[in-house]
């Protein structure tokens, strides 16, 4: 009896079991994912990494509920995921902000759908606008913001809606290197403060190692999980440290081993 109760409370935030996904494009069938199994616990920061075509974005979109799996299941606290929901917030690479809403209106969009009174909406919008440091820009439209600011709004928008799992699809891919580094730090601060579970898709090994507790390496043709590594480097992480480099090299090797990439020959 005791055991059953324990198991319920200890249910993983996300459990992905035997997940496969096939697309049909014209006459051709593409196997995007084959038998993917992954369990993610509450508060974990997981990076999905792999070359393009490995199905990492597809996996994320299935977790978000934007696409349905061909077979297998994704469960959140034991409940199968069938549709998008506020508890899983997606941050897109191209931001997908509502261009006709101001920063604070974008952030309050989710809470507004729940029918909260305007006073609460204002309070929530102010709190999360402040969290991402955009209070001065609360009344700006997305078209008036830089890429980094837009992505901050997108993050605040899903957090304001009390999302428990933050799904990020190459969120900093469109940003310049400096902005990207800054946003990585901000994301880590937000993650530590809110204890939100993060699943972060990237193709940058360095980004994955800087950010995550766990790096899941995926390979293409068909998309599947190749390797699942726990990153135990202490935070904050220093990209130029020796141990950091070691981890990075190790993951890079996992990422490229199946393609048979040879080490670059030294200059003659």
């Amino acid at each position: 009896m005791h055991d059953a109760a324990f198991h319920r409370s200890a249910r993983p935030t996300l459990a992905i079991k035997g997940l496969s996904k096939r697309f049909t494009i014209g006459e051709q069938t593409v196997e995007a994912l084959r038998d993917v199994n992954l369990t993610i616990s509450k508060g974990e920061f997981v990076c999905l990494i792999g070359a393009s075509g490995c199905g990492k974005s597809t996996l994320l979109r299935i977790i978000a509920g934007f696409e349905t799996a061909t077979s297998g299941t994704v469960e959140m606290y034991g409940t199968p995921i069938t549709a998008p929901g506020p508890e899983r917030g997606m941050v897109f690479q191209d931001f997908a902000l509502f261009p006709w809403l101001t920063v604070k209106e974008n952030i309050a969009f989710g809470p507004k759908q729940r029918g909260l009174p305007q006073v609460n909406l204002d309070e929530i919008a102010a709190r999360y606008t402040d969290m991402v440091g955009l209070t001065k820009f609360a009344n700006y439209y997305p078209s008036q913001l830089s890429g980094g600011m837009k992505q901050r709004v997108a993050i605040a928008r899903v957090l304001a809606n009390d999302c428990e799992v933050l799904l990020m699809d190459e969120p900093f891919g469109a940003l310049d290197a400096l902005t990207r580094e800054k946003l990585q730090q901000e994301l880590l601060e937000i993650w530590e403060r809110t204890k939100v579970t993060v699943i972060f898709v990237t193709h940058s090994v360095e980004e994955a190692v800087v950010l995550s507790d766990r790096v899941v390496v995926m390979t293409a043709g068909p998309g599947r999980i190749e390797h699942d590594a726990r990153i135990q480097l202490p935070r904050p992480r220093e990209v130029s440290a020796i141990d950091f480099n070691q981890v990075r090299r190790d993951i890079t090797q996992r990422l490229t081993s199946h393609v048979g990439v040879k080490s670059i020959p030294a200059a003659a």
Binding site: G85, P86, R88, A96, F98, F109, Q113, R157, N161
Partner: peptide
């Protein structure tokens, strides 16, 4: 994408 964003936010 705006439809996806809206649906994930409960709209």
């Amino acid at each position: 994408r705006l439809f996806e964003a809206a649906s994930m936010l409960g709209c």
